[in-house]
């Protein structure tokens, strides 16, 4: 799911073969179908699949850094939610994002109705232990900050639905003979309100913690 070819693959729409139409009117029907209905159906079909970054219409069974099952995003309805994306082999970008969000969190007027969620971009390597260590080493209190992973297919589906651009890259041979890779990725941070509506977007590497905390504080 991670390579460019598979990420750009779109669902294939196959028009049904219509054998039920009669005689002379068949060409008219086919023309009408071709001219109006097929484009309309295609717009509805592909339009429904193409969310902007951060939106999701489905639910996903994931696991947090303590090994608890989380149904994302429905388990967070009723709370303000700040969603970001990280992976534990990320040397720089994810750390900048995480550090900025931690500062924003400390500035909140009221934090017990806000949950921060960091979803891994690398479910293959990021198990719950790795995510828990990632948080602990940075001194992050995980009471209201969850680090989510899950089966590779589930996480990839979620990231695809959220239109998160990513690509495995910079592959090297590790000292132990294994494969050492990194992930090129976009760095959005998305603020959802209690109803699951997206209310603000930030760029993780450029976010101003003051702006994030203010946006959260202003949400009812």
């Amino acid at each position: 799911m991670m390579d460019t070819a598979s990420m750009s693959k779109q669902p294939t729409f196959v028009a049904p073969i219509n054998n039920g139409l009669l005689g002379a009117s068949r060409n008219v029907w086919e023309s009408t179908l071709a001219a109006f209905l097929l484009p309309l159906m295609a717009i509805l079909f592909f339009g429904g699949c193409s969310n902007s970054v951060g939106e999701t219409s489905r639910v996903y069974k994931l696991t947090d850094e303590r090994g608890r099952t989380v149904t994302f995003p429905s388990d967070y309805r009723g709370r303000k939610l700040v969603v970001s994306y990280i992976y534990t082999h990320c040397p720089d970008v994810c750390i900048v994002t995480t550090t900025g969000l931690e500062k924003a969190r400390k500035q909140l007027a009221k934090s017990d109705d806000v949950t921060f969620v960091s979803i891994t971009l690398d479910p293959r390597r990021d198990d719950t232990t790795a995510l828990r260590q990632y948080a602990e080493l940075r001194g992050i209190d995980t009471k209201n900050w969850h680090f989510l992973t899950g089966p590779e297919s589930t996480v990839d589906s979620l990231l695809d639905e959220m239109s998160l651009v990513r690509r495995r890259s910079f592959i090297e041979q590790s000292q132990t003979g294994g494969e050492l890779y990194f992930i090129d990725h976009d760095d959005p941070v998305v603020l959802w309100d209690r109803k699951g509506e997206i209310r603000a977007r930030f760029k993780g590497t450029e976010l101003n913690p003051d702006d994030v905390s203010q946006a959260i504080n202003e949400l009812p």
């Binding site: 040397p91 720089d92 970008v93 651009v165 690509r167 590790s174 000292q175 990194f182 090129d184 990725h185």
Partner: peptide, 18 residues
């Protein structure tokens, strides 16, 4: 660490690339 390199982060094609 056994392996240390100088890396540069650049933004390209809507992604942050190393």
């Amino acid at each position: 660490a056994p392996l240390i390199e100088v890396h540069q982060m650049v933004e390209q094609d809507g992604m942050l690339r190393m």
